[in-house]
Each structure stands twice: as structure tokens, then as C-alpha cells.
């Protein structure tokens, strides 16, 4: 088996096909620890604007931790800290003292594994982020709610019951509502942590189509255990194992002819 080049983000073909562009997210030499337990080891990776990047790997490989590093969600965990390295978004180091974490999480939205709508109406779920940002105009909020629900491919299903409780929606609709809620505050980057793991195939298909539609406007990073999903929706795929980035390449290449044997074994289900 041919050895992988040393450059970790090795997708030269991908880069050659596109205009040279600065990465939306630049991760360099990152070590991350929970207390004394190091869960991410020396990861360097670029994620480019308006691409869908999939993180794959067995449970405990650090992919969700890395995802949560990208909007500092790990700050909420006791003992969680960066050992070394940096994460930059458009050149700004996320751990700079000047970085406003609330503002950061507005720029870098997140959708979780299990849909988590607020116990409020459908309308209020989407409007909430705008209201806490201080938007008061009913007209502006109405427009944003409709726009976000349309982008989340949910508007046609809920437009006549916007004031009903969000818990009355199906699991797939709730997840799309959470995506609409994220979109309402106009993020640049959307992080998704196994967004379809609790959904049936029909709802999964809707969310996947939605992700493909959204990538024209947003940079999307998805953690998934579903190899076929990574194959269907992502432009590039990064494979992690035991906290290390093993291989990152065009998704087609990863699923047809990965460079590393470990990647091949994992995606073929030969170890997990």
C-alpha cells in the first residue's frame, strides 16, 4: 500500500479544481484534552468555504470533540482544554481573548444528534435567536422566520400552524426546525453532529437534500456514523482514529480508493 503524503490535508486534486481560496476553518497541530485524557492528537486540517466536510471514524475517535471545538462548545465541559495548536476561522484564532463566544456561536451554528426544539411554538423556535439578538421589528422577524423555514424545506409543511407547539412535529420536522433555528441567525458555518441518527430513511433523505441545498451558501461540517451518508452529501471526508486524523481527501476518493489501509478497513466495516 502506497504511503500517504505527509501533508495531512492531501486533497491536491480538489484544490487544483477550484480557485485558490482561504480556508473558512484552519486547524493546526491541535491537541485537545479532557483533564489528563488527550482525545485529539496533533490534528491539522483546512475546511474551505461552501464545502460539506464529513468527519467519520469509530466511536471515541474524537470527531465530535473536534466538531465542538469549532464553536467552543467544549468550553462548557469541566477540564476541557487545548493542549497545543490553534483553530482559526477566517484568520481569527478562536481562543483569542478578544473573541466573543456568543458572537462566535452565532457565526458557527450547531445542529445536534437529537432534535432539541424549545417547548415553544414553531414560530417562536425560529424567532428566538433573533429576539435575543435584539431584533424587535415584527416585520423583520416574520420575514426571517419564513425565509429560514423555507431554506430548511419546512415552510410548506408548517406555514398554516406556526403557532402550534414544536413538539407536535415529527422527528424529521423537528430536526429541520432546529436547522431553521440555526439558519435564522445567519451563520457562516453550520456544524452538524450526527443530524440524522434518530431519523427514519424518509426524514434522513429530506435532511440530506437540505444539506446539499445549503452548501451553496454555508460551510457545513457533519459528523456521521453513516458511511453512505458521508458518501452522498460531502465533498470531502476526514477519517479519524484514536484522536488522530488518518486521512482527508475527496469523498469519492476516500470511498473508492483510500490511501491508508486503516481508512479502507474502517469504511469497509472490517473494524469499528
Amino acid at each position: 500500500m502506497q504511503e500517504a503524503p505527509q501533508i495531512k490535508n492531501s486533497d491536491e486534486e480538489y484544490l487544483a479544481d477550484t480557485e485558490p481560496k482561504d480556508p473558512a476553518i484552519r486547524i493546526r497541530d491541535l491537541d485537545f484534552l479532557y483533564g489528563d485524557n488527550q482525545v485529539i492528537h496533533d490534528v491539522s486540517l483546512d475546511i474551505f468555504p461552501k464545502e460539506v466536510m464529513a468527519f467519520i471514524g469509530p466511536s471515541g475517535c474524537g470527531k465530535s470533540t473536534l466538531l465542538r471545538c469549532l464553536n467552543r462548545m467544549n468550553d462548557l465541559v469541566d477540564g476541557a482544554r487545548i493542549g497545543k495548536g490553534s483553530i482559526e476561522i477566517h484568520g481569527t484564532n478562536l481562543h483569542d481573548k478578544s473573541v466573543d463566544v456568543i458572537e462566535l456561536r452565532k457565526r458557527v451554528g450547531m445542529v445536534f444528534q437529537k432534535s432539541n426544539p424549545f417547548p415553544k411554538s414553531i414560530y417562536q423556535n425560529v424567532a428566538y435567536g433573533l429576539q435575543i439578538q435584539g431584533v424587535r421589528s415584527k416585520r423583520v422577524i416574520d420575514e426571517k422566520v419564513e425565509q429560514s423555514l423555507r431554506k430548511a424545506a419546512l415552510w410548506e409543511e408548517v406555514k398554516d400552524r406556526l403557532n402550534e407547539n414544536a413538539y407536535g412535529l415529527s422527528g424529521g420536522q423537528q430536526q429541520r426546525l432546529c436547522i431553521a433555528r440555526t439558519l435564522a441567525v445567519e451563520p457562516e458555518i453550520i456544524l452538524m453532529d450526527e443530524p440524522c441518527s434518530a431519523l427514519d430513511p424518509v426524514a434522513t433523505g429530506r435532511v440530506e437534500e437540505l444539506i446539499l441545498g445549503l452548501k451553496n451558501e454555508y460551510t457545513i461540517v457533519v459528523v456521521t456514523h453513516n458511511m453512505q451518508q458521508a458518501g452522498r452529501i460531502s465533498d470531502r471526508t476526514a477519517f479519524f482514529y484514536l484522536g488522530k486524523l488518518i486521512e482527508c481527501d475527496q469523498t469519492k476518493k476516500i470511498f473508492l480508493n483510500p490511501i491508508k489501509q486503516q481508512t479502507e478497513d474502517y469504511i469497509s466495516g472490517k473494524f469499528g
Binding site: 458511511m227 453512505q228 458518501g231 470511498f255 473508492l256 480508493n257 483510500p258 481508512t263 479502507e264 469504511i267 469497509s268 466495516g269
Partner: peptide
């Protein structure tokens, strides 16, 4: 049934 990838798919 298995949705094979990589070497198996090829």
C-alpha cells in the same frame, strides 16, 4: 445489503 466501498466495491 452491504453497500460496499473501496476495494470491495471495486
Amino acid at each position: 445489503t452491504h453497500a460496499p466501498v473501496a476495494a470491495d466495491l471495486r
